[in-house]
Design a binder for these strands. Structure first.
Length: 346
DNA sequence: AATGTTGTCAACCGCAATTTT
DNA sequence: GAAAATTGCGGTTGACAACAT
């Protein structure tokens, strides 16, 4: 794999962009689109490399950019998303319309980190600094987590470990269940509540700005969990404290009757992901088989979950564009990816 | 006023992933 | 399938401005 072709070219300008260069680039892309970035400089009459043009467009010239200072709400959202996604700036930026990964990264490094430290919160782990010092006495709190997997196994760190799995799945970014759901809105559209798969109980917590999935263990199976009414599936149940139409929006063909809306069971004992995942229950979890109607997640010869009567929108949609086998395959593979990622976290 | 320090931001660099040839 | 080209990402740098001494 060679270096970027532009690196071989000579006499290419570097550094700050002049207004004239901006105008050339803006005019070119406005009239012709960017197409292949490596050809943009030549076509636009610029002595820049394509990479530089792309960056200038994305970070400055794009018409949909939001100018000006970040609002407190945006800053809070960045903090929340960072606690889930870590330094995945582009993913964070995708949930802040009009903001670029570069400016979010700059804001984080120049401002937010400092504010968190002033509040006694470690910006890397989002835990109180005293707690972090206790956990990791030899590690400087100034270090960013380069890789989420390097973190100690804690509940918080699990979210850092597997954020994309959840955000992608629950947020339906990659699945793209419903074109009306933007990446920004979909993450925050998840219904807060609890669900059970076999004897596994999951929770989805929703703050005003963020959603975090978690897993809980019920002390007993006689909880007040409510089944999904018409869509009977003995091993899949869902309860919610919210009548959001998320599932309808997501394309799942089910609904939650108002009579079954209950509060989450307060007796659920929350456990750490790492502890939960260390149970034999999760060893070797795989998707045993799947079709448009049924998906089995199997572990050690026993089904963890049977999800039935749930149809993904591709398999039943009237829209031909969404009913391709390929799309259905993506759906299955994503479920499998999620299940396998559980198993591999051991 | 001169110098040093700090904060902000745009842009670059290297790398990895993806796409094209 | 391999190599090359392209794209995208996150870390880092350096210019500049504001502030402090």
């Amino acid at each position: 794999m060679g270096r970027h072709s532009c690196c071989y070219k000579q006499k290419l300008r570097k550094g700050l962009w002049s207004p004239e260069e901006d105008e050339k680039l803006l005019n070119h892309i406005t009239h012709h689109g960017h197409g292949c970035w490596s050809s943009v400089p030549k076509l636009a009459g610029l002595q820049r490399c394509g990479k530089s043009c792309r960056l200038r467009w994305i970070n400055y010239l794009r018409p949909d950019l939001k100018r000006g200072a970040f609002s407190p709400e945006e800053e809070n959202l960045i903090v929340e998303l960072h606690s889930v996604l870590g330094n995945r700036w582009s993913q964070i930026a995708s949930r802040l319309p009009g903001r670029t990964d570069n400016e979010i990264k700059n804001l984080w490094n120049s401002s937010i980190k400092k504010k968190l430290k002033q509040r006694g919160i470690d910006p890397n782990t989002h835990k109180p600094i005293s707690e972090v010092d206790k956990d990791k006495p030899t590690r400087s709190s100034n270090n960013d987590h380069k890789s989420p997997s390097s973190s100690a196994a804690t509940n918080q760190d699990f979210f850092l470990e597997r954020p994309s799995d959840f955000s992608d799945y629950f947020g339906f970014q990659k699945l793209n269940f419903n074109s009306n759901l933007t990446p920004e809105s979909s993450l925050c559209s998840m219904v807060p509540g609890q669900f059970s798969l076999g004897n596994m109980v999951g929770s989805v917590f929703q703050t005003p700005v963020c959603v975090k999935p978690s897993i809980s263990l019920p002390p007993d199976n006689s909880s007040s969990t409510v089944s999904r009414g018409d869509h009977t599936a003995s091993n899949w149940e869902f309860q919610t404290n919210n009548t959001s139409n998320f599932f309808e929006n997501s394309g799942f063909s089910w609904s939650i009757p108002s009579s079954s809306v209950t509060k989450p069971n307060p007796n659920f004992e929350e456990v750490k992901w790492s502890e939960y995942l260390n149970t034999p229950f999760f060893n070797g979890s795989t998707v045993q088989s799947q079709s448009s109607q049924q998906i089995y997640i199997k572990s050690e010869g026993e089904y963890l979950a049977k999800v039935s009567n749930i149809t993904d929108p591709w398999s039943q949609s009237q829209n031909e564009n969404l009913s391709t086998p390929e799309a259905s395959d993506v759906f299955s593979k994503d479920l499998q990816r999620m299940a396998v990622s559980f198993g591999q976290s051991l």
